[in-house]
Amino acid sequence: MPRGLRLEARGIRHAYRDLTVLDGIDLAAEPGQVLVLIGPSGCGKSTLLSILGGMLRPSAGVVLQSGEVAAGCLNPLTYVFQDFALLPWRTVAGNVALALEGAGLPRAARASRVQEMLALTGLSAFAGAWPRQLSGGMRQRVGIARALAVRPACLLMDEPLSALDAQTRDVLADEFAALIARAGTTTVYVTHNLREAVRLGHRIAVLSRRPGRVREIVAIDRPLSGRNMADPDLLRIEAALWALMRDDAAAAAREVSDASA
């Protein structure tokens, strides 16, 4: 059993006024593993992620954390956002340093931590650049560097690649896989992209159409670092996932305007 944080949702129900988006979610992110949440649009996966990280109070149910948090962790539950959420008035290095400030780290330690994260994400040459000068892929690299800089016990990634083009998405998915595998951090990864799910998930929870429930959990017993997307096994899992989701996705697409209300 790898060391790290375990995050468990118990009986989570959530409604926006009289619109129930999540109904009876029981789900756990196991230590050191990547749990992917997948489902048609409007199924409440992002809502669930907000609840898991303590950013949204569920209508009912509770989220429990267990397991040890490594010394030096500055923010156990750390998000990576779909829209990057970089501070435009801070440079790349400044954004990565944001959560390190006021954490009691000596200045030199902080600087070297930032350097280390920038090197890890291939951003060293852009330390002084403004976010507006970067492409979307580069911006999300800053987002992951900022998240890893706090040595999180659990990464909460909210469709981190969906604002990017397909090629950048593939490249970054590989990079994420390497970074997550290296850090061994418990991760909850929300996506609607099956390819990403298969590339990054140890377990894939398929949510049903609204109100979201866990329909099925698919486990992929293969280390992240060795996965090849041409692997027939992975392709088969992707096809199976699609079969699970297809009807729901089609139905969701028809009521999409309703869901966004």
Partner: peptide, 27 residues
């Protein structure tokens, strides 16, 4: 608001959010 939520999610104090996010954002 997403920047303020980001600050909260990184555990920044209220004062730090005002100083590092609200003020520069409002500038």
């Amino acid at each position: 608001r997403n920047l303020i939520r980001m600050g909260q999610s990184f555990g920044l104090s209220r004062a730090a959010i005002v100083a590092k996010i609200v003020l520069p954002g409002a500038l």
